[in-house]
Design a protein around this nucleic acid. Structure first.
Lengths: 351, 351
DNA sequence: GTTAGGCGCGGTAACGTTCCCATGACGATG
DNA sequence: CATCGTCATGGGAACGTTACCGCGCCTAAC
């Protein structure tokens, strides 16, 4: 009654109640070195009795480790990044750490502001999907970090976790070729985005392997959003084309926008236009037709990034660059034009 | 060169460089009381020169305010909650605070663990969508908090932010009646969830106003997921029914699952079965047909919750319960059976 | 001309924790 | 029996910050 009016119990309260010094109490509650089992038990009991809870702020001050990690992604509202955040969150929780989540909206200023906020909050490290095309902000960051997503390439000295875009693109290209499609039209992201470069390079590389001239590929760009994909698709449809159109979108949101644009134009997917996406967001399943897509392992990426960040924080030397494999999810948005199945195309309809 | 090898500059470094005491440096950098403009400037310059950044951990220890807020929601992967998180995030950032995000997966144990983590991290307060049907964990929480979502009802003494379910349900019911539908079948959440109770109560209340016996409403339950909605819809379709079926789902994910189940059953939406949802998640737009739904203002809710939390943290007395209005988003999943438009039903097709 | 008050500044304590060192007791070994 | 080592414990410092208090100077008022 004398204490505890609003104040939260400290280790001194525990020590007093157990009749020991705060040093002993601390020993009992953390490492178990040099302490009688009996005293330890007495302290633990006292701690439980007063409802003691270690103050992470104080621990952080003393140890220099705050037990917090930062996550800077473009938009938590984007289902793919939500998956990443979830994976990171769970993995962090497992290690007893908390996650500070920030959305940069693909905005360099916001990103810089968030990195500053993370430094002030004294996070132990951060997982970052950088949007800036230069790495000045990252250089200035000064804390351990792991890059996530497609932007890792330029920063060779840094640990990173991404998906294997080359393998993913191959998966997609192989699939659409196996379904009888030729070189696809492309919907890609904005110019200054590194993700766009990686995607395009993988496509070109694959085209060359197949003796296709990459230059003949029609291409439109847009923001990595449904609206961006919709607009890009409209422009694509406005071009001259003969026969079935096949579109490879660099991102599922854009792919879904593309499907919507197809419908708006009075065309049918996949009968008139085939669309294949890239990301593997859950909502692709309940688009209509279901979105055929190359799925990145978002949740795994988040989890692995946290793992990597921890080893970055602890034993500095281990620089690793991890590329997790993608997998193909076949739903209904890609027509089967192959010779064996000339009329399987009509399947998607139903209405 | 003597200092700074890895160490981050403290206010003492700033003070030394400016040739003042750390007290003066602190005064210059925080409140501006009792300090010469000239000294202040000198300190600020010195701070910039050494790259000083205030240590929030230390500030937190000293002041008792950590500048961090907690957010505990069922699942960041659920688009609705992602919207809420985003709104909270932005609002917190505006006030210079950071947000710790946790997903409870509708799991009481996890929720309790996350609340403990938040206390240890010394957050200043939390925004919580409680899943437990009792409030023991919340009682034990001991920090300022604001409830968010449908579970606020039982805790009359607590500030809360939610959507106006009653008004939302009325919006949905009025809409489906205006389109010529009778009493809808319901797809609701699991038994022990407070959200379910609120939804059902609103529906019943509205039925009574319209002289409909609530008891005649068919009802199936499921998890608040696409799969849960799909299964519930299958069971609903297995029942006897005549004519057009109209379904009011308590959540958009379930509504989308319902549409998928309709398609799987070889039926058409909205020609054979009408579906209306509740949440207003963005992905409802690119389902096919587009999901007609009652939209909650998720982002606003998150933002208002942070506002409320701050006033809870600062001037305790202000207990407020806020219910933000829902709005109807009309897309294609609800057939128009009204007399004026007997054949408008076919519209949704297009294929 | 003397004194009171205001203002700018420096010293110090305190927030809660952990780590290092000192102290004392006890057991083991010569 | 004496000495050394081990081990449980207590005391104190330090992490970086801010609030409080006291000191000295300058100005204004009597």
């Amino acid at each position: 009654m004398s204490k505890s009016r609003g104040r939260r119990p400290t280790i001194i309260d525990v020590a007093e109640r157990a009749g020991v010094s705060k040093s002993t109490a601390a020993r009992a509650l953390t490492g178990s070195s040099n302490i009688t089992e009996e005293t330890r038990e007495r302290v633990v009991l006292a701690a439980a009795a007063v409802g003691y809870e270690r103050n992470h702020l104080a621990v952080g001050m003393r140890s220099g480790r705050s037990g917090m990690l930062g996550l800077v992604i473009p938009d938590i509202t984007n289902p793919f990044w939500a998956e990443v955040a979830r994976g990171a969150q769970d993995q962090a929780a497992e290690a007893g750490a908390s996650l500070l989540v920030f959305s940069s909206d693909w905005d360099v200023e916001k990103e810089a502001a968030h990195l500053r906020a993370l430094r002030r909050a004294r996070v132990d490290g951060a997982i970052i999907n950088p949007v800036a095309d230069n790495f000045d902000d990252l250089d200035r960051f000064g804390l351990p970090f792991v890059l996530i997503g497609s932007s890792a390439e330029r920063f060779v000295e840094t640990s990173s976790v991404g998906s294997d875009i080359t393998q993913g693109v191959r998966l997609g290209m192989d699939h659409l070729v196996s379904k009888g499609h030729g070189a696809p039209s492309l919907i890609v992201g904005p110019k200054n985005r590194l993700a766009r470069v990686r995607f395009l390079r993988a496509v070109h590389q694959h085209c060359i392997e197949r003796d296709i001239d990459p230059a003949i590929l029609a291409m439109e760009e847009g923001e990595y959003t449904v609206e961006g994909g919709k607009q890009a698709m409209r422009r694509l449809l406005a071009r001259d084309h003969v026969g079935h159109v096949c579109v490879f979108a660099a991102n599922d949101m854009m792919a879904i926008g593309a499907i919507m644009a197809v419908r708006e134009a009075g065309l049918r997917c996949p009968e008139d236009v085939s669309v294949i996406g890239f990301d593997g967001i859950p909502s692709g399943e309940f688009a209509w037709p279901g979105l055929t897509t190359v799925a990145k392992p978002g949740r795994d990426m988040g989890a692995r990034a946290v793992e990597g960040l921890f080893s970055e924080i602890e034993h500095k030397p281990e620089h690793r660059r991890i590329y997790l494999p993608c997998r193909l999810i076949e739903r209904g948005s890609l027509a089967d034009l192959s010779a064996q199945n000339p009329r399987r195309v009509a399947r998607g309809g139903g209405v």
